[in-house]
Amino acid sequence: MMGSFSYVRAGSVKQAVAALAHDGARLHAGGTDLLGCLRDRVFDAGSVVSISGIEELGGIAALSGGSVRIGALATLAEIASHPLIRERYPVLAEAAASAASPQLRNQGTIGGNLCQRPRCWYFRGDFICTRKGGSLCYAFDGENRYHCIFGGDGCYIVHPSDAAPALVALDAQVSIAGPGGSRTIAVEDLHILPKQDIRRETSLEAGEIVTEIVVPPPRAGLRSTYRKVRERGSWDFALVSVAIAAVVAAGKVSAARVVLGGVAPKPWRSIAAEAALIGHAIDESAAMRAAAGAVEGAQPLAQNAYKVPLLRGALEEAVMSLARP
């Protein structure tokens, strides 16, 4: 059961930003993550500012120049089924389709998906952990089988989004509106590590909201895929996931972005895996080298060492699935 709050329906981005200036104001788009957090008392809300009625924040459309604009309110179901996304960016369609459950994909928005709070069971549960202002990360010495093997520092969450690694692989940009105006950054720069700020998962400042995502035009020869490993066939976050966007020209990889999910507090780009692919044909040996590169520097906790071989296996499979266009 949720505690009480006041409700503000914003008619425009400007109104929303203004309403979010109040203490305890929380943004409502699809509501799935927000209402769950309020119900679990992960945090409370003084007011709930709804942007669901702002039409300009919705929609998926091609822009001149070949980019595709995805409004922050586009649902995961819309992204997963949209012909433009399915044709041009399979990695994104597959990632969106693999998230949560059908009902949640109908309700959950891409903006909310990028900004969702962590699924760490200590964070969601009845524990005052570092991310909630406490002094202890319970996961570090506790039940950490689902926690990170990269990038942990005082907090060992993994970023739960499936879509985020796909968008980072596609080098998408995200537009942000806030009290100081609007800005656009790479999705890659949206998420931050605990060492940057242990209380937040994104670089959004107070009062800022995501308004849209722009995915650049697909380059000739672009092949992309999303491979997710989970314990349960539906409504389960990734144990590990791999998003790859690679450009193949004349039988060789000319450019590649390899982004890992389920292994770090943010979508984790693996430059080593990318380097192992670029300049080579996609074959078993390239896949093995990329997989070996991807797990370099992994620092497993007591219960999640399995993520190292699992990540290797998933990455090998993802690479091999791109062997043919």
């Binding site: 409502h28 509501g31 799935t32 209402l35 769950g36 709804s50 179901a77 059908p102 009902q103 309700q107």
Partner: peptide, 19 residues
Amino acid sequence: CAVLVDGKPVLSCLALPVE
């Protein structure tokens, strides 16, 4: 708790009526 909203299934436990 699923209901249909405009023909699509959504979870009524994660929906505010005012929305």
